[in-house]
């Protein structure tokens, strides 16, 4: 088996494992994630696999529930960015001309922002909750997809079958969505996979700075926010959530690379 395939398989398996754990979290979590069940900052043990946090909550249960939040945020954020990016890219590439230049200049503007700073600034002024986090990440990360889709459209719209569709009088939306888009989906899927990795990283950074998902709701990022103060006393509070983020993002990268090879997308 080739290396890329091995990695992709490993990534898919790990990712699947995390997703399943996230889905059945309420069934398998030994404790209520918000409940104070033990004394504070206990080291990992058999009764508390990941130890307890600074309030005496079970970190294993919080990590399981945190998986739901972190994965959902990553998924929805990337969905938003792919939707926006595809729409802009498709319109830009299909119609070209003035519309194209306007959209592409807008993309240039958005790309010139120091994006994490933009996200921090917007997020700090909104009520911090999970929906805003998803929206803000989605709204600031669609530019790559837009450029990609535009490129695909520029290529595909010149192909003969599109000419044919136009000749028989298909409407523009129909051509865009039924004829061109399906043929441009491979690079979008690859970009979405890698984008989800990025979104999860961004969520964790936001939550770490206290601007993301808010406690008492657990996400891997805000579990880390609590941990910095306890770096000396309870290092497991920082090590475990960080490792979970690392592994999830890594597996997404592996899956993305695998898809890239398999779907023959240029990198």
């Amino acid at each position: 088996m080739r290396r890329v395939n091995r990695q992709a398989l490993f990534g898919a398996a790990l990712l699947g494992f995390f997703v399943i754990l996230a889905i059945i979290a309420p069934l398998i979590a030994p404790y209520n994630p918000d409940e104070i069940v033990e004394s504070q900052t206990l080291a990992p043990s058999l009764s508390h696999l990941f130890g307890t946090d600074d309030l005496g909550r079970d970190l294993f249960s919080r990590a399981l529930h945190g998986a739901r939040i972190s994965l959902t945020v990553g998924f929805v954020a990337v969905l938003i960015s792919v939707l926006i990016g595809t729409l802009f890219g498709a319109v830009s590439g299909y119609y070209g001309g003035f519309l194209d230049s306007v959209i592409m200049r807008f993309v240039d503007v958005m790309l010139a922002f120091p994006s994490i700073f933009l996200i921090l600034a917007i997020q700090s002024m909104l009520t911090p909750n999970i929906y805003n986090v998803m929206a803000v990440i989605g709204l600031t990360s669609w530019m790559g997809v837009a450029r990609l889709v535009r490129g695909e459209f520029l290529r595909i719209r010149e192909l003969q079958y599109v000419e044919a569709a136009r000749a028989i009088g298909c409407s523009d939306p129909r051509i865009i969505f039924r004829h061109i888009l399906p043929n441009a989906q491979s690079p979008i899927i690859v970009a979405a996979t890698l984008g989800m990795a990025g979104a999860i990283l961004t969520e964790s950074a936001l939550s770490f700075l206290g601007l993301g998902v808010q406690p008492p709701m657990a996400s891997w990022g805000n579990m880390l926010m609590d941990s910095q103060a306890y770096l000396f006393d309870a290092p497991w509070m920082s090590i475990i959530p960080g490792l979970l983020i690392l592994l999830t993002v890594l597996s997404l990268y592996f899956v993305g690379e695998g898809l890239r090879e398999k779907l023959n997308v240029r990198g």
Partner: peptide, 28 residues
């Protein structure tokens, strides 16, 4: 504010014991 956040979580549980349900909302 870590202290207030912890207080809210603890009060939520203390009031649960007398059958009162508390929701916590974090605002900027």
């Amino acid at each position: 504010n870590k202290e207030r956040e912890k207080a809210a979580v603890i009060l939520q549980q203390q009031y649960k014991k007398i059958g009162v349900k508390v929701n916590i909302r974090v605002l900027e």
